[in-house]
Write a protein that binds this DNA or RNA. Sequence first.
DNA 1: CATGAATGAGATTTCATTCAT
DNA 2: GATGAATGAAATCTCATTCAT
Lengths: 225, 225, 225, 225
Amino acid sequence: MAQSDTVTRILDTAEVLFAERGFAETSLRNITSKARVNLAAVNYHFGSKKALIQAVFSRYLDPFTQRFHTALDELEAQHEGRVIPLETLLETMATTVLAVPAERNSLKVFMRLLGLAYSQAQGHLRRHIQQEYGDVFTRFTELVRQATPDLPDAERFWRLHFMLGTVIFTLSGLDALRDIAEKDYHEQVTVRDLVRRLRPVVVAAMNAPLPPALEEGKYANAQAS
Amino acid sequence: MAQSDTVTRILDTAEVLFAERGFAETSLRNITSKARVNLAAVNYHFGSKKALIQAVFSRYLDPFTQRFHTALDELEAQHEGRVIPLETLLETMATTVLAVPAERNSLKVFMRLLGLAYSQAQGHLRRHIQQEYGDVFTRFTELVRQATPDLPDAERFWRLHFMLGTVIFTLSGLDALRDIAEKDYHEQVTVRDLVRRLRPVVVAAMNAPLPPALEEGKYANAQAS
Amino acid sequence: MAQSDTVTRILDTAEVLFAERGFAETSLRNITSKARVNLAAVNYHFGSKKALIQAVFSRYLDPFTQRFHTALDELEAQHEGRVIPLETLLETMATTVLAVPAERNSLKVFMRLLGLAYSQAQGHLRRHIQQEYGDVFTRFTELVRQATPDLPDAERFWRLHFMLGTVIFTLSGLDALRDIAEKDYHEQVTVRDLVRRLRPVVVAAMNAPLPPALEEGKYANAQAS
Amino acid sequence: MAQSDTVTRILDTAEVLFAERGFAETSLRNITSKARVNLAAVNYHFGSKKALIQAVFSRYLDPFTQRFHTALDELEAQHEGRVIPLETLLETMATTVLAVPAERNSLKVFMRLLGLAYSQAQGHLRRHIQQEYGDVFTRFTELVRQATPDLPDAERFWRLHFMLGTVIFTLSGLDALRDIAEKDYHEQVTVRDLVRRLRPVVVAAMNAPLPPALEEGKYANAQAS
DNA sequence: CATGAATGAGATTTCATTCAT
DNA sequence: GATGAATGAAATCTCATTCAT
């Protein structure tokens, strides 16, 4: 009880502050004082600030990974070896991402954290994530490959990352963008709203015509539709 | 000359370090020692670390803004009041973005900085950019509006940011992605390559079918195609 | 059993770490984690870090004191009131010192600890040793006095400490010196080797001619031979 | 002036506190508060605690090394290629050691520091000293070799270290020993006193008969007199 | 008998900034 | 116009010890 309480309070506070200000701008003092916990507790329970950062991510990514694997298992079972359509795959991923933090009403925090993981200079974090959670991403990528057999491998790689950028950038900067949108268009934007808007865009982007081929390494307008 | 030299050396060093590690993780000591400049020089010449950060951005954004205005002037002159096609607008923006840091071979740095501006907790920076460079973005947005008359305003707003995310995320994380791409697909990826790949994706995304309306009909302007 | 086990493991680990790094540089965490024992166990079993340090010494000094008293008893019995020669006394001490840690193959550790006791700022330790083990040293000193009747008391005092320094310094720094000796002279040096080398040196030092008296005749008992 | 003042105050305070309590037991806070200097000043001027420790040593060892080289130059000039007697060499060393801290009346501190350098776990310090000041010791050793041609090399090595132990142990523990000596023998012991007492002891030790050879004749160079 | 949790104190180090020159 | 010195604040982390169970 006592332990769980302290550890949980630290994690809850840390994820919010990290999401708000980033890792470097959030001191252990900020976290522990807001969590009303002894300053040394972070080091006692987690060992270091780096380990705390990783723990914050694991609390989201562990259940996500598990659910996503399960969801993909089900999909594969349903399709009995047939190719799973791209839209189904994207839908499944979106659903799983949304499901994880649903109970804690903290999708925004999760997305901010993901964005930070990419943009902030935390090599240890990127390594940790790649190492712990790379498998499920590889599995997903392979299914996408089967769903888009006409796309050259390199093109698919880049388009997936284009879309990753779209999603992470949008969702992690959600607050600022939402403010503007509300001011200018009088919209109350929810995350589900955004997902609804994202779906056709992502599908269209993945299915866009191929770019003109390169001409002997340089650029020509020959097109390989 | 001597002063200009010091200032330039500081800016050159700062932009590289900021791009590599972010703002908080880069200390003035890092900058001044790498630039072989006195520690107090930053505060002497720029007043504060915040002002230095803004100066780094201004060095890119001032010429960009100027060129972009000029380019849009020319476009409008050419089309004599007729609507400028979306692809022309995007092409012009891409060209201008690429032109600015061309001489310094530092597009990657520029993009990293833009990414940081969005993702890091530097309120002062976001305010500074909005205030100084909001005009040209507003002008561009208006031209895009004319080029996509069927797109609801809110939808256009979000799709522009989706694409902004794609571009910034991709170009700012260029090095890491490039490494993977080269390893997996034996491609030598150049920035121009990426732009070539981005063009059809962005166009397709902007022209994607509208999302289905929300059930409750809450938002009048979200209309099915 | 369980308790004895824990206590022994702590002592075994502590003496090694203390000898390697000194007292202040060895934390209770170091000790308990290496001994795979609960962090609180040291305070539980010994009360404090200081008490642990003293316990480490007692484990060596208690049996040493006992054996040395016994050995001196035997010597006195053999000599039936006659003076015991200096070399016999030294030999007996050396034998006893070597005997104590023999079973644990840790003479080096013992000597390092003795050296630390003198050189590190552990007032409590020096007081503890003096108080607990001063008697046997006093007894030995008195026998040495009888064996060297021509030596002024002060001179004897200093020379005994000179030799104490020789022995402790050499044996406590044994590892480093042994490395050098092996590298430069291709010798495999054992402790018994060193004792063999020490014997004639110590005897010669104790029997060295007296130093010249101070000019002012300050000290009557310091007389040239 | 200002700089020299702060740096000097730090060094003066640090050497006293280090000598009294050892390195680990002396915190930078102790030093800076006693020196009435800002806490950050140590890191500003020296970079780290380790560097401060080394600086404290250098302040003694640099002039010592210089003077000792000069003194040996003079000795060699006087003897015009002839062997310099052992006692002259020892006398010269003693004189030089005494001369260095004379002006600062801090021989005791110097000796304590030397003792600490050997006994405390400061690998960096031992490396620093060996690297910076090894040369002069090598030169001295070579002269001692010429002065004691009958001594096997290994024997000379060990005897030199025996004597080093004597000197360092005695002089570094001077305070405690002096207290006892004064109490028991009503002597006012000065450092020069001790040197006077040490001289015949060291000479006798160096000239002691060789130890008996090892039974197995393992070491050819350990030869009975 | 033993331990996991917790804590207050204090360690070293780094920071952006200021100031006298 | 520029800089070396200095500094107050705050960073992370480690420490020996205590306490409830």
